[in-house]
Design a protein around this nucleic acid. Structure first.
Lengths: 233, 233
DNA sequence: GTCCTTTTGAACTGGTGAGTTCATTCTTCA
DNA sequence: TGAAGAATGAACTCACCAGTTCAAAAGGAC
């Protein structure tokens, strides 16, 4: 954060051990916070889990609060990056649109239902009233960015004459909602495992509904846009 | 719950003051738990907020844990009852289907975005790992029941030839997801107010998508089912 | 008025945890 | 090898809080 370490790779003032410890602490901190919640998590437990002495934690992060912010932010950024990578895999020149959406949807749902993602969501829900800024940090370069990226892809598909959209952002929100909404309830907020089959069924149903609502029916065997619908955008 | 009080209205062994105090404690407890989280909420603060002495709390609920369970369960039942009432207002003989869905959707979203509902959801997320049974209690007579009720109504609409559904439960899940998913993000998990216009826009978009996917197009001015689609169920 | 239950206030115990201090040890690099 | 910064462990302070105890006070029911 505001430590005396220059951001460039300076071998003189950034001992290699420090970064390892820092990462170990962040990892352990997230795990303990996720398991016990902010209030019940003790700095001693985190230090133990990280294999580090308590004062080291205070050296690096100042206190429990700073540690929490850093741990959550770091994990959130990692999770967002994973989801973004999935969205970027959605091209606009796909052959079988429903198949492509199922593929992306399934991978997104895997991200969404990962243990880490559940823990992150639980923590955010739990502590958002005490740390509103953490939510802003996560959103600042988080799902907002993610939502935009997905909206971009959908807009491309609309331009390519494959989707009929008025509002790409709204459509992206709805696509994600159709994917994740049904899973939220079925997995008891992530505390019960969801079978892969259930995941795939949910994805299939979501894509079915989404395409019924938004997909442009294709002329038989034609692979280029033929209806001129894309000119309207 | 298992107290020495008969369930009938027995004026002899149920002093009127007790129930008032009990309710006051439950209300104050939910408020304090919602504000501070389980771990940081103190029984003293709850007793103060309820205008009651600390031992009284222990007389009624045994301890912090029992108090938490009761407070959350009670609030959850109230919230579920409200949502159920809205769903029961959805008839199967409506004239303008989209209009009826918007009406129900809007009212559901009002339930969903109430301060109490947000607090409840935050609490559940926060403490589900420590109190899994509370979630089960809430679900036992909660959203499960709610989901079933909505599915029933949609099945009726399908029978009336207004919707084309394979799986009413799935459709109900998706309807709710389309309503609530977009709001979740926009309101920062309930910590930022959402304008009524935004709510209505979300409802309109959700119903638009839902009807595009599931509504049976009606013959002009005809108000009876004419396609015989309902015979398939 | 009398009996019985509930409530009250206040003090007390025991446990837990954040954050600090400091002398000692480790690591890294010159 | 020697110097400097980092990490360590252990003890310590201070605050907060769950749960208990108990004698005194309400508050109805008869």
């Amino acid at each position: 954060m505001a430590g005396p370490h220059p951001s460039t790779t300076d071998s003189r003032h950034t001992p290699r051990g420090r970064i390892d410890k820092r990462n170990a602490i962040l990892e352990a901190a997230f795990a303990v916070f996720a398991r016990d919640g902010y209030a019940k998590a003790s700095v001693d437990a985190i230090a133990d889990a990280a294999g580090v002495a308590k004062p080291t934690v205070y050296n690096h992060f100042g206190g429990k609060e700073g540690l929490f912010r850093q741990a959550v932010s770091t994990t959130a950024e990692r999770a967002t990056a994973r989801s973004l990578a999935v969205v970027h895999g959605l091209g606009s020149d796909v052959d079988d649109l429903a198949h492509a959406l199922r593929e992306v949807g399934y991978r997104l749902l895997l991200c969404y239902t990962s243990e880490e993602a559940w823990a992150l969501r639980r923590l955010l829900h739990a502590e958002i009233s005490r740390f509103p800024d953490v939510f802003d940090t996560v959103r600042g370069s988080g799902p907002d960015q993610f939502s935009e990226a997905l909206a971009d892809r959908l807009a491309r598909l609309a331009l390519a004459g494959r989707l009929r959209l008025e509002d790409p952002v709204r459509a992206a929100e709805q696509f994600v909602a159709l994917l994740t909404g049904p899973v939220e309830g079925r997995s008891a907020l992530g505390t019960r495992p969801v079978s892969d089959q259930e995941l795939r069924d949910t994805v299939a149903a979501a894509v079915e509904t989404f395409t019924r609502a938004f997909a442009v029916p294709r002329g038989r065997l034609g692979d280029g846009p033929s209806s001129g619908q894309e000119a309207a955008l």
